[in-house]
Measured scan of single mutants.
Amino acid sequence: MEQGTVKWFNAEKGFGFIERENGDDVFVHFSAIQGDGFKSLDEGQAVTFDVEEGQRGPQAANVQKA
């Protein structure tokens, strides 16, 4: 798993971006967030995640709040 920081996340649209430790950004969809209840992330929040190849390039999977 990688570690990163939430760059931004739009809860209304259900997606955002995580900044990886290497400085690259990776797309995150709310469906990739682990846990119960409303799935959202806060700007600046530390997270761990896997990276999978999506239809439009790399995207975060198995996102967990650190």
Rank of each mutant, 00 (worst) to 15 (best):
K39D: 05
S40C: 10
E53M: 15
L41A: 03
A66S: 14
E2H: 15
V47I: 06
D25M: 13
V26C: 05
Q3P: 06
E19M: 15
E52C: 08
D36L: 11
V47P: 01
G37H: 07
G16W: 00
D42I: 14
P58L: 12
V51G: 02
V47N: 00
G54Q: 06
G23R: 10
F38G: 06
D42K: 15
G44Y: 05
V63W: 00
Q34V: 15
F49I: 02
T5F: 13
Q34H: 10
G57L: 04
F17M: 09
G37P: 06
V28Y: 04
N22G: 12
D42N: 13
D36F: 10
G35S: 09
V51P: 03
I18H: 00
K39W: 06
F27T: 01
V26A: 03
F49T: 01
A46Q: 13
G4Q: 01
F49Q: 01
Q45H: 07
E19Y: 15
W8R: 04
D24M: 12
A11M: 10
K39Y: 06
R56S: 09
A46T: 11
F27L: 04
D50T: 13
E19T: 15
K7I: 07
V47M: 02
V6T: 07
I33Y: 03
K7W: 03
P58F: 10
S31G: 06
D24C: 10
K65I: 14
P58I: 10
Q64I: 11
R20F: 05
Q59A: 07
R56W: 15
E2L: 14
R20A: 06
A46I: 13
M1I: 12
S31T: 13
D50G: 08
Q59G: 04
A66M: 14
R56Q: 11
K39G: 06
R20K: 09
T5D: 04
R56L: 11
G35L: 08
N22D: 11
F15N: 03
A66T: 13
G57Q: 04
I33W: 04
F30H: 10
F49G: 00
K7Q: 03
G57C: 05
E52K: 11
F15I: 08
G4C: 02
K39R: 14
V63S: 00
G35A: 10
E43S: 14
D25S: 09
G16E: 00
P58Q: 08
W8S: 04
H29V: 03
V51W: 06
L41W: 04
E53V: 14
E52T: 13
A32V: 06
Q55D: 12
F15T: 03
K65T: 10
G44H: 09
N10S: 13
Q45N: 07
N22F: 12
K65A: 12
D42P: 08
D42V: 15
E19S: 15
T48Y: 12
E53P: 11
A60K: 00
E53I: 15
E19P: 01
H29K: 03
F30T: 05
I33A: 03
A46R: 15
K13C: 08
K7R: 11
N62F: 06
M1R: 13
A32F: 04
E53W: 14
K39H: 07
N22P: 09
E19A: 15
L41D: 02
E19N: 11
V47D: 00
F9H: 02
F38E: 07
D24P: 15
A61I: 13
D24E: 13
A61C: 08
R56M: 09
D25I: 12
V26S: 01
D36S: 13
N62A: 04
D24H: 13
D24A: 15
G14W: 02
A61F: 11
Q34P: 06
E53Y: 13
G57A: 05
Q55W: 14
Q55P: 15
F17E: 03
M1V: 14
Q55G: 09
G16P: 00
Q45F: 05
G14E: 02
F17Y: 07
F9A: 02
G14F: 02
I18Y: 00
G4H: 01
G54K: 08
G37W: 07
E43V: 15
V26Y: 04
E2N: 11
Q3C: 11
Q59F: 14
F15C: 05
G54Y: 06
V63E: 00
E43F: 13
V6W: 02
A60H: 01
G54P: 03
T5L: 11
S40Y: 14
Q3W: 13
A61L: 11
I18V: 04
Q55R: 15
N22T: 12
E12P: 08
Q34N: 10
N62H: 10
V6Q: 00
Q55Y: 15
K13I: 09
T5Q: 09
F38A: 07
W8N: 03
Q3H: 15
Q3M: 12
H29M: 05
I33P: 01
T48D: 05
V26H: 00
G14H: 03
T5I: 13
R20E: 02
G54V: 06
F49W: 02
F30M: 07
F49E: 00
D25H: 11
G16S: 00
S31Y: 04
W8L: 03
Q59E: 10
S40I: 10
Q59W: 09
Q3Y: 14
E21Y: 12
I18C: 01
V26E: 00
P58A: 08
P58Y: 10
F27S: 02
I18N: 00
F30C: 07
K65W: 07
G23M: 12
T48S: 10
E19D: 08
F27R: 03
D36V: 11
K7D: 02
E52V: 15
N62D: 04
N22R: 12
Q64R: 13
K13V: 08
I18M: 03
E53Q: 15
D36R: 10
